[in-house]
Design a protein around this nucleic acid. Structure first.
Lengths: 334, 334
DNA sequence: TCATATGCTGGTAGCGATACCAGAAAAACG
DNA sequence: CGTTTTTCTGGTATCGCTACCAGCATATGA
């Protein structure tokens, strides 16, 4: 059973050609004659031969695997990005190795090391905060890298993202423009996470522009679950009975808060308005539908993969920074 | 930059030992003397050497990558399974290559081929319906395989799952026991998907046990979106004004239906009860919280990975079929 | 004391493919 | 028709590492 995996030379023998001809017939059929191609194809099909990509990679020092590190596989946000990236890569004969860092910087470093040891031909990292050691690791490897979670000041290589700062700022201004006077902000954990940090900064920047005081008690940090969102809302309202809008840095938090309002019979947006980050289906279909920021996650995945592919095809290694922007989606909840 | 990647012999030279000693010091430190280990470690750290796993895999004909194919990366159900599997694999030095078949059988076959060409050391497949060619492909490769989406009659190798049939049957009986007289069932697309098919069969089996007629108009097939769930519910109610319960084969469908009830002011469960498949956070926190089937997704991922690891460590290649069961979670919506 | 066991190190020969070059055959040219 | 070019094929030498065996020390036994 399966023990005897075939090698190229076996196919070659059966086809009555040299191994080199088999190799060529498989990778660039146009380089061999009609006759050879026919013989090789026949033998390949007859034995169900699958070329050993490991050997191929070693020999050509070129791999066809891209490594991707996200903070959490579970999060559906990343899922839409991953899907889009995966699709583009696949049509270019590349595969995706996925790992999650669990939001731990040291784990990310270990994962990147492992990926580099596997000799991936490219890396996509969601995180944009890196240790010095990691930066050096990636740089000396010479592997093209894309960062996607934020627009970093000093990209490792290429970046495809949007501005968390601008997005949070824009939404805060939007809520103010709609007439909300007291806007609370619920952020995801900030530690080792520049995205959260940027969003918080954006919120405060907007308040400053509006000439409103920066009240730290209007900002709460919450882990990203439904309960945490509900809890945060309640705490904010208790502390600030005149709170008339809540801006949540994640869709799960926002929906958790929305459910809490339903349980307590608080009208949304009558009693309190709700706004969220990231346009997932859930927010569009919730009752009431939730105002949010549309971040072009699939486009980020697509562009990242495309840039990687282009670079692998020989494009010059110049730093590229793509800002795919965002969009405010005004809905019933505000 | 980075052009000159170091080889083991370079490290060996700098450490004043042979390449073999470096190899051993890295893989089984106990096999070399204290002194050698020290010298090698120092050189490795000094130059930031990363062993080339491609070469290592080729040489030892042993890889450390597991291939995983799910119908859709986007679906959060798979995410919790993937996460759990990934964790177990990582602690055993294995990595995960992930691909999605988009529910297309022919794509799955292509992906499995590609994975086998990459010489993965194991496969996890969610799907359990396979073409003849695919079965042969996998069998002759000799690679251990786990199927996770259903309990197949003829597993390729090992299976870790639960019974879709029994789960759907149990929930239908449960709803009947609660007193619901007319239970509609909304299934996900059935084509090439034995899970959906099994669920539908389970629903009908329950009806038969209850001595109720098998009314095909009580079953609707819907693609898995919020709108589709909402739509399906409305169509069912229009066709059957006395419908008092809706059982949805996916959580997005169920929540979509729930939202529709909220929009229309239908009391849940007063006017109509709702039940779902799969226990995701959303269902627990929705208002009202939704009755559902808890499928042990993380456990499935964990056990799958563990079985794979054990097999790679030399466990005999015997067919194993693990049924991790399910559980009915009764909540407010029914 | 010699013989056998044990611990550690290094040399050699692959793993299965591809890069590169050489050469034969066919085609194109003057 | 000879010469140059083009087209195609095959041999050889890696790619970077590990399996396997040989060999030298030191340790253990009789």
């Amino acid at each position: 059973m399966g023990g005897g995996t075939l090698r190229m030379r076996d196919i070659a023998r059966h086809a009555g050609v040299s191994p080199m001809t088999v190799s060529r017939a498989l990778r660039q059929p146009s380089a061999v004659s009609e006759e050879m191609r026919r013989r090789v194809d026949a033998a390949v099909r007859e034995f169900g031969y699958l070329p050993n990509r490991i050997a191929g990679s070693l020999s050509s020092s070129r791999s066809n695997v891209v490594g991707l590190v996200v903070p959490s596989i579970r999060n559906s946000l990343y899922a839409s990005m991953i899907q889009a990236a995966s699709d583009v890569l696949r049509t270019n004969g590349l595969h995706l190795m996925i790992a999650d860092s669990g939001h731990r910087l040291e784990d990310e470093e270990a994962l990147v090391s492992a990926f580099l040891a596997q000799r991936v031909c490219g890396l996509i990292l969601h995180n944009t905060v890196h240790s010095k050691r990691m930066r050096k690791l990636v740089e000396t490897s010479g592997v093209p890298v894309i960062e996607t979670g934020n627009l970093p000041d000093e990209p490792l290589d290429m970046a495809v993202s949007y501005s968390n700062f601008e997005a949070a700022r824009a939404m805060t201004l939007h809520l103010a423009r709609l007439g909300y006077r007291k806007i609370g902000f619920v952020t995801l954990p900030v530690r080792d996470n520049d995205r959260s940090e940027e969003r918080r900064r954006g919120y405060f920047a907007a308040l400053a522009e509006l000439g409103r005081p920066a009240d730290a008690s209007l900002v709460l940090e919450a882990a990203g679950g439904f309960s945490e969102g509900a809890e945060a809302l309640v705490r904010l309202v208790n502390a600030h009975p005149d709170l008339d809008a809540g801006f949540f840095a994640g869709e799960v938090l926002a929906v958790g808060a929305l459910f809490e309002c339903q349980r307590r019979g608080w009208a949304v947006p009558g009693r309190i308005a709700i706004a969220s980050f990231d346009d997932v289906d859930l927010l569009r279909h919730a009752v009431p539908s939730v105002t949010t920021l549309r971040i072009p996650r699939p486009e980020i995945g697509k562009r990242s993969a495309e840039l990687l592919v282009r670079r692998l095809q020989g494009a010059p290694a110049e730093p590229i920074k793509v800002d795919l922007g965002f969009e405010i989606v005004q809905r019933e909840s505000s």
